[in-house]
């Protein structure tokens, strides 16, 4: 079993764990963390599966870099909304 395949299988576990978390958890902060877990899982599958024969493939690596930046942006927006909601509730 190559390291790529191990990454892909670990990615599946993270993805499913995150998906379960997003569906089942109720606290917004935990759901944001769960979403990030899910994203990391998908990134691992993207990179690992393509390189399961031990070769190097720069294309999924670049895609994952793009994906990470998108995830950072989305997480920041989500955190801002949570914080705004929290502040608003304390004001009322």
């Amino acid at each position: 079993m190559t390291s790529g395949l191990v990454f892909a299988l670990a990615g599946v576990l993270l993805f499913v764990l995150g998906l379960g978390g997003v569906v089942m958890l109720s606290h917004a902060l935990r759901r944001i963390l769960a979403f990030n877990l899910m994203g990391s899982g998908a990134f691992l599958v993207l990179v690992g599966l393509a390189q399961r024969d031990g070769g190097v493939d720069p294309v999924p690596q670049a895609m994952v870099l793009t994906g990470i930046v998108v995830a950072v942006a989305a997480t920041a927006l989500a955190l801002a909304l949570v914080r705004r909601l929290h502040g608003a509730h304390r004001d009322d």
Binding site: A50, D53, G55, D57
Partner: peptide, 13 residues
């Protein structure tokens, strides 16, 4: 599904 896949068939590298 991942384990049953045949060897990688990557042409992009």
């Amino acid at each position: 599904a991942i384990l049953e896949l045949p060897g990688a068939n990557q042409s992009l590298p």
